[in-house]
């Protein structure tokens, strides 16, 4: 969970930085998209590194979900008889809901997100348009932006616990309150970074 999560967090950081290229204009953004496909060429074939990253990411996602399912199954096996009264959370209940249900929400969002902006299937501009156009068109619809915002905030909340939890699992967090703050800060930065683009599109700063 912690290791696959760490890979995904690194990806998210890269993804967010890439997104910010939007503010540099269509050429820069499309150029960045192209660079992703051609980086390392001719040492490696076109899309070589990208494919490698994609494979790692898919593997990380699958393993992350697999770990979650395994944990869930272990939890279910560890409590075959449930409480008659709903167990009342004494720790705010945040973690249980955000990690489990938040995780499912995020998974659904990722599917849509790929269909929308990567494959363009669910995008008004279609798969043939440039990435920049797809993005502008995609976020021109308020409900898409809203869904996106909800999902990104969910990702942030997921990370806020996930990051710290990873530090715990890797045995780094003992007594270090700083790591809790770091987890919260990084999550906030990611959320803000991801949200800046669609909101900029929505209010017309980026066209």
């Amino acid at each position: 969970m912690a290791v696959t999560g760490a890979i995904l967090v690194l990806f998210l950081v890269g993804h967010m930085v890439g997104n910010l290229k939007t503010f540099a204009g269509p050429e820069a953004f499309n150029g960045y998209a192209l660079w992703l496909r051609e980086v390392g060429y001719p040492l490696v074939p076109k899309r070589g590194l990208l494919t490698l990253v994609e494979v790692v990411l898919v593997a990380a996602v699958v393993l992350h979900i697999w770990s979650a399912v395994a944990l869930y199954r272990r939890a279910a096996a560890a409590r075959p008889v449930r409480y008659a009264t709903r167990r009342r959370s004494q720790a705010g209940g945040y973690v249980v809901h955000i990690m489990r249900w938040g995780g499912v929400t995020i998974a659904l969002f990722v599917v849509y997100h790929l269909l929308d902006l990567t494959f363009g299937v669910a995008n008004p501009a279609g798969g043939a348009a440039t990435p920049y156009t797809r993005m502008i068109e995609g976020f021109s619809r308020w409900y898409v932006t809203l869904f996106y915002a909800v999902a990104v905030i969910m990702v942030g909340l997921h990370l806020r616990h996930g990051l710290w939890s990873a530090f715990q699992t890797l045995g780094l967090a003992r007594g270090r309150q700083g790591l809790r703050v770091f987890a919260a800060l990084l999550s906030a930065v990611l959320v803000l970074g991801f949200l800046s683009v669609p909101f900029a599109i929505m209010i017309g700063v980026v066209k």
Binding site: V95, S165, T169
Partner: peptide
């Protein structure tokens, strides 16, 4: 023993 895995929910320390 069959205990579940820890997800650091903090419910334990709260009780």
């Amino acid at each position: 023993e069959g205990f579940g895995g820890c997800t650091n929910t903090g419910e334990c320390t709260a009780v």
